[in-house]
């Protein structure tokens, strides 16, 4: 039996990788993908806890989170396309309307 610790560490590492993607990349699409990686990392932690505590409801939460992630991607992509049509650019640094 593999200790849960390993699963959790893997999930943490994936989460940090996702974070680095959000921080480093300028392409909006890749940023969105990085966010998805972070989400998946958390899902992994959920699944492993569910497995190790024998609680199937942990999996239910993952199920919900996948569904919500799908919805999020739909809206996110729609927004990205809208912005692209306005700005002709995929670069987040061009999207600085909120600059004070």
């Amino acid at each position: 039996m593999i200790p849960i610790k390993l699963y959790l560490v893997l999930s943490g590492v994936l989460f940090v990788i996702g974070t680095s993607g959000v921080l480093v990349r300028k392409n909006v699409l890749v940023m969105l993908m990085s966010v998805e990686i972070m989400l998946n990392a958390v899902n992994l932690a959920f699944v492993s806890f569910a497995r190790y505590m024998m609680l199937p409801k942990g999996q239910v939460y993952v199920f919900f989170s996948i569904t919500v992630a799908a919805a999020e991607v739909i809206v996110g992509l729609a927004i990205i396309i809208s912005i692209f049509h306005k700005k002709e650019s995929m670069d987040v640094d061009d999207m600085n309307v909120l600059k004070g």
């Binding site: 990788i17 996702g18 993607g21 480093v24 890749v30 993908m33 990085s34």
Partner: peptide, 10 residues
């Protein structure tokens, strides 16, 4: 593999 592919995405 998963860590590698994730890094590759970034």
């Amino acid at each position: 593999l998963s860590v590698f592919t994730a890094i590759a995405v970034v």
